[in-house]
């Protein structure tokens, strides 16, 4: 296979695309959910379902990971706090400003991830100008789509 596009990369890109499709489907379903319950309630209960089903499917793996370093658990816990905190902040933002204003701000999160990656884990995350421009184009495109959907 071509240099730079090995099997690991191909699988990684497929996984990322799968995640994107899943999140896309969840956005459509979320539209239905928030017609019946507040977003915070829908998200919390959805998280319970997700955690229970994934936990049941991955129980064997999780048992194997119980001896992981305490540091790994701390990072995973912090990531959970950030994911939950981000959701709470997003709903709070939407209660204070219209979606057309909030969505473009939220869309910059890949750039903040890259920024923090370069500050804190530069040794394990390589950033090239091509990847940065690609990420920038994705963010700009998503902002234009969110504006287009609210015209």
């Amino acid at each position: 296979m071509r240099d730079g596009l090995n099997r690991t990369h191909v699988i990684g890109y497929m996984l990322a695309t799968g995640a994107s499709i899943s999140y896309g489907a969840s956005l459509v379903l979320a539209k239905q959910v928030v017609e019946d319950v507040p977003p915070l309630v829908g998200s919390s209960i959805g998280m319970i379902f997700g955690m229970l089903v994934l936990g049941a499917l991955a129980a064997k793996n999780m048992v194997g990971d119980r001896k992981s370093s305490r540091r790994s658990f701390v990072w995973a816990g912090l990531s959970g706090l950030a994911a939950g905190g981000g959701i709470a902040l997003m709903f709070l933002a939407m209660s204070k400003a219209p979606v057309v204003v909030v969505a473009p701000m939220i869309a910059v999160n890949p750039l903040t991830a890259i920024l923090f990656g370069q500050i804190f884990i530069r040794n394990i995350e390589r950033l090239t100008p091509r990847i940065f421009v690609g990420a920038l184009l994705v963010v700009v495109g998503v902002i234009i789509i969110s504006l287009g959907r609210n015209v």
Binding site: I11, G12, Y13, A16, S20, I21, G24, I114, E125, I131
Partner: peptide
């Protein structure tokens, strides 16, 4: 995907979800 291709490549692809939502 982050564990396989890293943060910088995975996150922008994952962030394209509004295209699939649309």
């Amino acid at each position: 995907s982050i564990s396989r291709i890293g943060l910088n490549k995975a996150i922008p692809i994952v962030a394209s979800s509004p295209v699939f939502a649309l």
